[in-house]
Amino acid sequence: MLQDLTLSNISKFRVSEFILMGFPGIHAWQHWLSLPLALLYLLALTANILILVIIKQEATLHQPMYYFLGILAVVDMGLATTIMPKILAILWFSAKDISLPECFAQMYVIHCFVVMESGIFVCMAIDRYVAICRPLQYPSIVTDSFVVKATVVMALRSTLTTIPVPVMAAQRHYCSQNQIEHCLCSNLGVTHLSCDDRTINSIYQLFLAWTLMGSDLGLIFLSYSLILHLVLKLNSAEAASKALSTCTSHLILILFFYTIIVVISITHSAAMTVSLIPVLLNVLHNVIPPALNPMVYALKNKELRQGLYKYGVKLIFEILVLRQIFIIT
């Protein structure tokens, strides 16, 4: 009887929407963060669109390595666009409310894109391993068909393994608190508000972070260990330097991507109270890589650098011309 009454009360007071409060501890002046975040988002969109245009237009870049980079650009733009419009709406217009279906949908898409990005990093590591350690077999192994198949496999993996995250979160009962001390619908941030046991949600979140993405990191580490082992045996310092230079940009991005994931996972698993640093890291993890990935690759790759300069200057010129026409009219 008492259990039926409790369930009745939970159903009666179940919340219909969440309130995203933004950055905890700095609500009074968090709107000042909107400018750097908006600039990062604009940079992410512009740089990744330029990367896609360059890869499409330049025939010399029609290679598997650049195809993977193009796929990474699409994933990066999708990840940034999933969260940034809502964050800017919170900071600019105090549009903090979000319905439960929208929140769970955002939660799913974020996890899906993050896992997909991790998978693309694995594909890029395998591409570099074959190119450096098996150069004669590279044209027959890493073909256009390989790129398509690898992308489809990673897409299916990311879409299927992340389905339980929003499904289990939606099964929780939210009957009192509906204010989320965050800018986005993170799994543990949302389920922390539930009135019932959320252990299974935490376990599956850690499973994704440590097992699925941990295995990705292990494959990447193995690939680059084999590359380093081969490079150290080269007699030519110039050849060794050239081989490593093609991997440097990839390693920089991997280091940032997985380091932040580990920090966020440890923070949540330690059951710490919600604070500014984990929330800020979570937001930056979803917007800084999309903004920096094209820049890092362009700085380390001559063809991309030339293409970025060429089309970047052209884009700026067209914007200035349109601005002048607008002023005249």
Rank of each mutant, 00 (worst) to 15 (best):
S241D: 15
L255E: 12
L232E: 11
P166Y: 04
L280R: 00
V231M: 04
N286K: 13
V262M: 11
L193K: 00
V190A: 05
T191C: 04
M272K: 14
T162L: 06
N293I: 14
L276F: 14
L156Y: 02
V287H: 03
F256R: 03
C183V: 14
N282W: 12
R172V: 06
Y258F: 15
P166S: 07
L234R: 03
A170P: 01
V262I: 14
T211R: 04
Y204A: 01
T199Q: 12
F221D: 07
M213T: 14
L188K: 05
L292C: 10
A298Y: 02
Y174A: 01
H268R: 12
P166A: 09
V165W: 00
P290V: 08
I254L: 04
N301C: 09
P278S: 00
L217W: 03
K300E: 11
V231S: 04
I261F: 06
R198L: 02
L281E: 05
T162F: 06
L251E: 05
L226Q: 13
S225R: 14
P289W: 06
I180Q: 00
I227Q: 02
I254Y: 04
P290M: 03
I260Q: 06
S194V: 02
V262W: 04
S225M: 09
L281M: 15
Q205I: 02
S194C: 10
S158F: 01
L226I: 08
Q205G: 05
A291P: 02
